[in-house]
Design a protein around this nucleic acid. Sequence first.
DNA 1: GTGAAAGCGCTAACAC
DNA 2: GTGTTAGCGCTTTCAC
Lengths: 333, 333
Amino acid sequence: MAATLKDVARKAGVSIKTVSNVIHDYPHIRPATRERVERAIEALGYTPNQTARNLRSGRTGVIALAVPDLALSYFAELAGLVIAEAERLGLSVQVEQTGGTREREIELLRAPRLRMTDGLLFSPLEMSQDDAAQLRVDYPLVLLGERIFDGPADHVTMRNTEAARAATEFLVERGRRRIALVGAHEGEVIGSAGLRLAGYREALEAQGIGWDEALVAPAGAWHRIDGLRATRDLIASGVDFDALFALNDTLAFGALRALEEAGRSVPGDVAVVGFDAVDESAFSIPALTTVDPGREWIAQQAVRRIAQRIEDPGIDVQTMFADYRVVARESTP
Amino acid sequence: MAATLKDVARKAGVSIKTVSNVIHDYPHIRPATRERVERAIEALGYTPNQTARNLRSGRTGVIALAVPDLALSYFAELAGLVIAEAERLGLSVQVEQTGGTREREIELLRAPRLRMTDGLLFSPLEMSQDDAAQLRVDYPLVLLGERIFDGPADHVTMRNTEAARAATEFLVERGRRRIALVGAHEGEVIGSAGLRLAGYREALEAQGIGWDEALVAPAGAWHRIDGLRATRDLIASGVDFDALFALNDTLAFGALRALEEAGRSVPGDVAVVGFDAVDESAFSIPALTTVDPGREWIAQQAVRRIAQRIEDPGIDVQTMFADYRVVARESTP
DNA sequence: GTGAAAGCGCTAACAC
DNA sequence: GTGTTAGCGCTTTCAC
C-alpha cells in the first residue's frame, strides 16, 4: 500500500514530527536531517494522504456545483468557467446534475454526497420562491440564477428584466413593431422566463406598442426542439410578426430553424434576438444577436464568494448583479 | 459545530458502538434502545462525518473526470453522461479541465488534487503514444479517446478509422467524388485526426478515387472558428469539391457557415458530413449528417469499468470499442 | 532541533 | 445486546 508518514520516519530514522516538519517547510531543521528525510520520501514515493488531512482540518478543498444538465450549453459553459476559477483558488469542483426537476433540486440540498464538500454553488431551474426556506442549510451555499430572491444565502445573478427590456428595445429601435416572444412560462413571475417576459412588456409599453397575447409562445423546456416547436406553432397560428425574441439562445436556434423551414428570411422578414451569448451563437446561420449576461463574471464572483464564506461563515449574505450587454450580430438588421 | 457519534451516545445514554449499530441497521438492538438513539440523532441533527468514514474505509466515493474543456460540446455531453451513470453507481464526479495541452495533461496525472478521488477517467487530447508510460499510475485509471493505444490502463474508445471510412463511403455512394476533408493534423498517425484521415483515404482508395492533397484542409484546434477558417481557405484556394467531411461536428458547423458565406448550397453544391453527433447537429441548418460514436455507451462502460477496478485493482487491463452509426440528415442528398 | 502523544470521527474486532 | 478500544494518517501542542 501507499507509504505513510510513519514509514518515512522509520526509514529516515527520525520521528514523524520531523518528517512533517520537512513536508511543511518548517525552517529550523538541520540540513542533514532534512536531506535524510527527503531521500526517504523519494525512495518510498510518499505522498500525503489527503483524506487524513481532510479529517484533521475539517476541509476538503472541494466545492460542489449543481446545475440542471451539462447537455445545456449555458450550464456547460458556466461549469467550465467555475472549474477554471476554482482551480485558481486551489479548489476542485464536484459537478452534480439535478435534471431540472424541483424534487431533485430540493433533495440535492440535503444529499449525503455533498457532505464531503466544503460548500455548494447551486443553480436551480424549478425551485420557486416558496421553497426559499429549503436554502437554509448548515454549509456554505451560493445561489445562482433567478428562481429565488431574498433567500437566506448569497446570490449571484443578473438584471434579467432590464436586459430583456434592452433586447426588446433594440428590436423596436430597428423598426420592428410585431415582436413575438418564444419561451414564456405561464403564470411565472420570477424565474428567468417571468423576469424576461416582464422586461419585454415594459419595453413595449414604454414605446407605446400594444401588447398582443397572440405573439407570446410558451415553451416549457428551453431546448432547441422546444424553440422549433413553439415557433412552428406561432407560424401555423397565422399571427403576423416581424421580430422574435427568444428567451434563450437555444430556443433561438430552434426558432431560426423553424423560420428557415417556413421560408421566412432572417433578418429580412423576421429579426431574431436570443439571450445568453453561448459560444455557438456566434456561429449559427445567421449569427445570432443576443444578450451577454456576464457569465464569466458570474462564475468568478460565485467561486470567490463561496471561498470567502468557507473561510468565514459569519459574513453577511449578499446579492450580486452582473452587467449585461446586447451583442449585435446578423440576425437583426 | 456538527454533532458527532460521541455526542449522540452521551445524549442517548449509550456507547458509540450502539449508535453506530443503529446507523448501520445492525439487527440485534432492543427496540427501546434503538428508539432512544434515533431520538438523540434527530434532536442533535446528527449526520455522519463523511471524511472520517473515508479515512477509515480508504475510499471516497468520488471519481475524477478529466476532459480538455467543457465549452466543447462533445466533452460537455460526455461529462453529463458520465455523471449520470456515476450517480447510478453511487459515485460522485470531480471534473477537471486540462485545456487540451500536453503539459497540463501529464501534470494532472500526478496532481495532488486527484489524491482524494478513487480513480480517474482521463480523456487526453494532446498526449501521444510516446507518453504512454506516464499512464502507469498507482490508482485506477480508465483512458478515453484515441490518443494512446496499448497503454498500461483500461481504454474505452471507438473504431475511428472504420467509422470515418463509412462516412466517406456514404458520400461516395451518393455520387460525390471530390470530397474535401477538414480538420487534418499534419503528421498525426493515431489520435482522432490521424485515425479518421486514414479511414477517409481507405474509402477513397477502395472506391478507386484518387487522393488529392489539395482537398485536405488542416485545422489545429477543432472549434467552430477553425472549421470556418479552414473551409474559407479551401474555397479561396480554388480547388473543386462537391462534398466535405469534417472530422468533428463543431468543425462542420463552421464549415456550413463558410459555405453559406460563399453562396454554395448544402447539400446541392456541397454535401457535408460531421462526426460526433452532438445534440446540436440535429438542429443546425441544414441538419447535419454525422457519425454517432456511441458516446452514451462509452460513458457507461467507462464508469462501470472504473468501478470494477476500484473494487478489484487486480483485474486485467482491457480495451473496449463502441459501435458507430452514420446518421443521415439534410446536409447530404 | 527533534520526539512523544493526543485527537480529528469513524468502524470493527473483541470482550462481556 | 451493548461497551471498550485500537487504529485509519495526519497535524500540532508541549516537552526535552
